[in-house]
């Protein structure tokens, strides 16, 4: 059972990790806790489902997947441009930007409710009924794909931030936005990029998660958002590695709890871990103390 729960934990963890990275990316460049992030997770999956249904349920899934990713990127860019940047540029402090992101979240959720409805609907899946053998335990093929995609995305993102020019711009902006702008880094473009990447990753997570459960509903963002945020803080908000590690820790802890104690304790354990970390190392596992950041 341990191995089985570990596998379930890792695959749940990959959903958290993908979502957590978006929180961290945005926080690292503008110091904003983006409350609309989980709504993107949900609306990306809803967008996928809607275009699938619109196409008479026989459009290739890859096509709707790409449409959903484009939606996510555009949504991320739009939120940044219309709801965050004007506040940031006025220098009114991040609390107003957080409030603005809460408003955005509510708007996205309302639009989805109106357009898509509130009932639970079937979500298309891939590789249904297929399994992969892992050290004698069975892993659903979709879980395997989800994990593989997460790993590939994380490696690509790591390579991008460390090796590309935009990645270097991202790191410099995270260290000090004004200083980066002063040496010629187009920080507005960098910040927009962070929103776009974060939104795309959240949508990937949302779609795979719905494929796993084979259902979708407009309220799926809430709990995932909280857990992914907990994972972000656990790993050290602002640290990409931290978000990924935090995501896997929470996913695994939850599934082991569900397996050995009871499913009703899984949220309790996830958030208890968070509180313990906050007490003993508030900057998280990979986080740097505030003074070192700049």
């Amino acid at each position: 059972m341990f191995l089985q729960q570990l596998i379930n934990g890792v695959s749940l963890g990959s959903v958290y990790a993908l979502t957590a990275v978006g929180y961290s990316l945005v926080f690292s460049v503008v110091g904003l806790i983006n409350m609309s992030h989980a709504a993107i997770y949900m609306s990306g999956a809803v967008c996928f489902s809607m275009f699938y249904n619109l196409g008479g349920r026989n459009v290739p899934l890859l096509v709707v997947f790409l449409i959903a990713l484009v939606y996510a990127a555009v949504a991320g860019l739009t939120i940044e441009r219309l709801a965050i940047r004007p506040i940031r540029e006025k220098g009114d402090g991040m609390i107003y930007a957080i409030l603005s992101s809460i408003a955005v979240k509510t708007i996205i959720e309302s639009v989805c409710q109106i357009v898509y409805g509130t009932e639970i609907r079937a979500f298309p899946t891939i590789l249904a009924g297929r399994y992969v053998e892992v050290f004698g335990a069975r892993m659903m093929a979709i879980q395997f794909v989800m994990l593989a995609v997460t790993i590939v995305i994380m490696l690509a993102l790591g390579y991008f931030t460390l090796k590309s020019k935009m990645g270097m711009g991202l790191r410099s902006t995270a260290q000090n936005l004004r200083a980066a702008n002063l040496v010629g880094v187009p920080v507005n473009r960098i910040v927009a990029l962070a929103f776009a990447i974060g939104s795309v990753l959240a949508t990937v997570a949302g779609i795979f998660s719905c494929m796993y459960y084979q259902t979708v509903q407009v309220n799926i963002g809430g709990v995932i958002g909280q857990k992914a945020f907990a994972a972000t803080v656990l790993g050290g908000i602002g640290s990409l590695t931290g978000s990924v590690v935090g995501g896997f820790i929470i996913g695994i802890a939850e599934m082991l709890t569900a397996g050995y104690i009871s499913s009703s304790y899984r949220n309790l354990v996830a958030f208890s871990i968070l509180i313990i970390v906050l007490i003993f190392k508030p900057s998280g596992i990979f986080g740097q103390a505030e003074s070192k950041k700049v």
Binding site: K165, R171, Q175
Partner: peptide, 16 residues
Amino acid sequence: FRDLTVTENLEIGSFS
């Protein structure tokens, strides 16, 4: 930038 290497600190000066 404290967390960029010396070379990266120079590269970032020629971003455009």
